[in-house]
Each structure stands twice: as structure tokens, then as C-alpha cells.
Simulated scan of single mutants.
Amino acid sequence: MAPEGNTITATRTSLRIVEALKRLDGAGVTAVADDLGIAKSTVHNHLQTLEDEGYVTNEGDAYRVGLRFLELGEYKRNRMAIYEKARPEVASLAQETGEMANAAVEEHGEGVYITRAEGTQAVTVDTYAGKRVKLHCTALGKTILAELPEERVDEIVDAHGLPARTENTITDRTELKAELAEIRERGYAYDREERLPGLRCVAAPVVPEDGDLVAALSVSGPTTRIEGDRFHEEIPELLRSAANVIEINMAYS
């Protein structure tokens, strides 16, 4: 992150307004101003500029995030080697398990889903390509943290905290680090209803030949189906196999 003295206030305000539109699922000038605690005239000027440039749309009495961001996100994602290599393996995991399969990467200390696929029994959850999540409360995120240097883990926790999403979320730094050590030892991570009640998840890292983590893969589903040997043996093996395929493809293609 750039030093505070090097940041541009107007740019930061525009981005905060865009985030508010997403959080509020579209809103008028007054609602955005109230949400952010800034003047309505300021909000209006920024929204007008963003609309003129094609980044937001004005639908009656509400502004909404525009599809220009989809164009930018797709451009970024399509330039990532891991995306093309992970996409077919994620689809195969969904088909084999019947559940939701995902791939995610770390960016600015958060997990970002880059691709997902739904099996025939997959439950509807709040994930989608581009969604950002805290790393400490997901199997994907803990897998990523387990592969990072301890100094980087501390930086992420300092910046983002360990907020509770459910009663099962790890909110203590010492406990988190102990779990990360276990994940490194066994090679995969569990989410035991730590982000969403009723949902379990297993994740494994994608670590190419050079030893640098590039992504994590996961399979998630309801606790009634993700249990016993399926939770502890079957799905972890499928994930490690898929991760190995991706690692080989990245090394030799």
C-alpha cells in the first residue's frame, strides 16, 4: 500500500463510492452520502463522473455498478496462467463430487475466487468469480495462509483482523497459526462451518515446481453430505490429484 501522503483523495473517494453502491445493491445520492458520511454534492459529482466514464449506470433514482468492471476483471483473469489451467480441473471436481468446486488466489491479503463450477447436487451459496473473502475463515484461505511466510501472515492479520463469521470461526492468532501448522503437515485444509453455518469445505494448495503458491482449490457442500470418510479422505484425495495435474500443466505447457 502506498504511503498515505502519496494517495489521491479524489480517487479514494470514487472507489469508496463504487464499493458503497455494491454494498447497498444500488442506491441514490442521499443513501450513498449517508452511508459514507460525506456531502451529497461530493457524491453527486463523483457519480456523475463515473457515469460519464461508463463505470456506473443511472437507473431511475438509483446508481449501480456498471459492467465496465466486468471487462476489466475478465481481462485480468484471462491473463492469469492459473485460470486456464485450473478451470477444467475445477469443472471435473464439481462433476466427480456433485458439489461446488472453486479456485481462488490471494490478492491484497484477501482470497479472490477466480473460477467455480456447480455439481448436480451443489447448494446455492454466496460465492462467484471475483468475490473476495477473508482468508482465516475459509478452507481456501487457510490453505493459502499455510503456504505463506509467517511475516506475511502477520501482515494480513494485522491489516484484516480475524472477524467472526460464525461461532466456529478462528478469531485467535495463536489458534490460527497452530491450525496453519497442521494444514502444512497434512497438505490440505478444512472449513468446519467457519464462514457459513451448515457448510463444510476442503481445500488444497496449487504449488508449482518453483515452490511458490499460486492458488488453492476447494470442494464445499452441506454438512449432511460432507462428512466421515468423504470429508477426511475422498475429497482431500480428489483435490490433491487435481492440484497435481494443474502443477504439471503449469510446469510443462
Results as ranks from 00 to 15, higher is better:
Y55N: 11
Y55H: 13
Y55R: 13
V56D: 04
V56N: 07
T57G: 10
N58V: 07
E59F: 02
E59T: 15
E59C: 07
E59L: 09
G60V: 08
Y63C: 04
R64V: 13
R64P: 02
R64L: 04
V65I: 12
V65T: 15
V65M: 09
V65W: 01
G66N: 05
G66H: 10
L67F: 10
L67A: 14
L67M: 13
L70R: 10
L70W: 11
L72M: 15
E74N: 15
E74W: 10
Y75E: 13
K76S: 12
K76H: 12
R77V: 13
N78I: 00
R79T: 14
A81Y: 07
I82F: 00
I82R: 01
I82C: 01
I82M: 03
E84Q: 14
K85T: 04
A86C: 08
A86F: 11
A86P: 12
R87G: 03
E89I: 00
E89D: 01
V90E: 08
V90Q: 08
V90L: 12
V90R: 05
A91T: 11
S92Y: 03
L93T: 04
A94T: 05
Q95F: 10
Q95H: 12
E96C: 04
E96Q: 14
G98Y: 04
G98P: 11
E99G: 00
E99F: 02
E99R: 08
M100L: 14
A101V: 06
N102Y: 10
A103T: 10
A103L: 07
A104H: 05
V105K: 02
V105H: 03
E107W: 11
H108G: 09
G109M: 02
G109A: 04
G109E: 02
E110W: 02
G111F: 04
V112F: 14
V112Y: 13
Y113C: 09
A117C: 00
E118S: 14
E118V: 12
G119K: 02
T120F: 10
A122E: 07
A122N: 08
A122C: 02
A122H: 03
A122M: 05
A122K: 07
V123R: 09
V123E: 08
V123S: 08
V123F: 06
D126F: 06
D126S: 15
D126C: 04
T127R: 04
Y128H: 15
Y128C: 08
A129I: 12
K131F: 09
R132W: 01
V133R: 06
L135E: 03
H136E: 11
H136S: 11
T138M: 09
A139Y: 06
A139H: 06
G141E: 08
T143W: 00
I144P: 03
L145C: 08
L148S: 06
L148G: 04
P149A: 11
P149S: 10
E150A: 15
E150C: 02
E150W: 08
R152F: 00
R152N: 07
V153I: 13
V153C: 08
D154V: 10
I156E: 04
V157H: 01
A159P: 00
L162M: 07
P163W: 07
A164H: 04
A164G: 14
